[in-house]
Amino acid sequence: MSVAREIEAVLMQEFAPGHIEVIDESERHRGHAGWREGGNTHFRIRISAPALDAMSRVEQHRAINAVLKPQFDAGLHALAIEVKKSGAF
């Protein structure tokens, strides 16, 4: 399973989002810290989920980063997170 699909599956299971996009932006970071050949190091997540609606922005990011800890441990270097209220995307 690709890293993007793995991230999506984890977030789907944990937050049951109405909208989710997982975008590999690794190539845009070529030569930067954490980049490696083959990508799968830098991702952008766009998500809308009722489970995140009541949380502050900091709480949302902490919750998402916490469930993706195994992916970070396996080489995920950077994650840009965009959270919108349910139905906003």
Rank of each mutant, 00 (worst) to 15 (best):
R28S: 13
P70N: 13
V58H: 08
S2H: 04
V10D: 09
N65A: 09
V10R: 15
A54M: 04
S86K: 09
A78Y: 00
A74M: 01
P50Y: 02
L11D: 11
G18E: 14
F15E: 08
G18R: 00
A88W: 06
I81D: 02
G18D: 15
V3P: 03
M55C: 07
V58M: 14
E59R: 04
H29W: 03
V67Y: 08
M12C: 05
A66E: 15
V22Y: 00
L79D: 11
E59T: 03
R5M: 05
E14W: 08
V83I: 12
E14F: 02
D53V: 10
V22W: 02
R46E: 14
D24E: 08
A16W: 05
R62N: 04
A16T: 08
K69Y: 01
E6Q: 15
I47T: 05
S26H: 07
M1N: 07
E8K: 15
D53Q: 12
L79R: 13
A54S: 13
A4D: 10
G75Q: 08
K84D: 10
G34C: 04
E14Q: 15
A78Q: 05
L68R: 11
M1S: 13
G18P: 02
K69S: 13
E27F: 03
E25F: 01
E37Y: 01
V67P: 03
I7F: 07
F15C: 08
T41H: 09
Q71M: 14
V10G: 01
I47D: 08
L52H: 07
E82R: 09
I7K: 05
M55V: 01
F89P: 15
D53W: 06
R46I: 11
F89N: 11
A51Q: 14
G75A: 09
R36M: 09
H19Q: 08
I45S: 07
I45M: 06
P50C: 08
V3H: 10
L52Q: 06
M12E: 15
A63K: 03
E37V: 09
A49H: 07
A78M: 07
V83Y: 00
M55I: 05
V83P: 04
A4G: 02
I23F: 02
R30E: 09
V83W: 00
R36F: 02
G31E: 11
A66P: 01
